[in-house]
Design a binder for these strands. Structure first.
Lengths: 160, 160
DNA sequence: TGTGAAGGCTTGACTCATTCCAGAAGTAGG
DNA sequence: CCTACTTCTGGAATGAGTCAAGCCTTCACA
């Protein structure tokens, strides 16, 4: 199945090649999926990719994601208590809104100006590379479900 | 063993009682340990506590830590890719310096003013509760080990 | 257009931090 | 001193991610 190669933007293909990575169907499909569905978890990326390609091993997904992350094609975000999410928006250091309950993430542009938008007062000898900002809260859907009346059914973790 | 009760500050005892939690030796010992060793992992807290009290089950540690965290006596920090760490400094929203390599954490005072020291430009319908800032980098020890000459032996995760 | 070797994929076992479980024993505090 | 709350033993399960060995594909070069 899926003899037709996955359609993904040329920029992605060039970036793969420039990084010395081969252009394979799993890689094309992962990048294509993340173009349309930023902040996806490995699970939902897997679902999306398999819908196009048929069987793809979980290991392959992890391999693709970590190769692309190391090559700077993807950014991985790891909200505490939730599985990792990936996005193609790299290079600018934007931040994220994350839902405590379901893990859903949204982009937020940098709050205080440009690139290293924050600097600690005392670095304690650390060689600092990056300031990560996460705004924790509840997403609109989970706010609605927080009403105490029917607290029985919690939400399942939103996967994509 | 350990018939002598653990010595911990009165504030901790009061806080326990106010939260409706009983004052037990494991709880005292965990709080005492965290007073002297902020940002400890469960493992290192266990080691410290057991040195004073003798045997304490891992389960009890997790119970104590989650009860105290829920009661607002402790704050849990979960740096991506590292086991959780706990600290007694709660209520002010200070931030953390975290070592990418070994997970060591240090406090950083709030960078841009007071309490909700940051506000996103667009909240996308989220009910935001907190802004978390993490400065990622390498701690002094791990900076030293980064020299490419002898890259064979990585560090073990620093537990306390 | 063919080919081979590096690089990528598959399979399946495995780690690690954490949670859950359930009954029994212990103890803090009214 | 009673009882509800804690902790213990210890086992089992979870979810997310990693490791390892062998097969398959991509692509540079002929």
């Amino acid at each position: 199945m899926a003899s037709v190669p996955v359609d993904v933007d040329g920029a992605a293909l060039d970036a793969l090649r420039q990084a010395g990575l081969r252009v394979t169907n799993p890689r094309r499909a992962v990048l294509a999926w993340l173009t349309d569905h930023p902040h996806s978890t490995v699970d939902s990326i897997g679902a999306g990719v398999r819908a196009q390609l048929g069987a793809v091993s979980t290991q392959a997904l992890y391999d693709v994601l970590s190769a692309c992350t190391e090559a700077g094609l993807l950014r991985r975000i790891e909200p505490a208590g939730h599985p990792a999410r990936f996005e193609r928006r790299v290079g600018d250091n934007h931040h994220h809104l994350v839902c405590r309950r379901c893990g859903r993430a949204e982009d937020v542009d940098c709050v205080v100006g440009a690139r290293p938008c924050l600097t600690p007062s005392d670095e304690k000898g650390f060689a600092i590379e990056e300031a990560e900002v996460v705004f924790w809260g509840l997403c609109p859907d989970c706010v609605r479900d927080e009403r105490p009346e029917h607290e029985a059914h919690h939400h399942k973790e939103a996967k994509q």
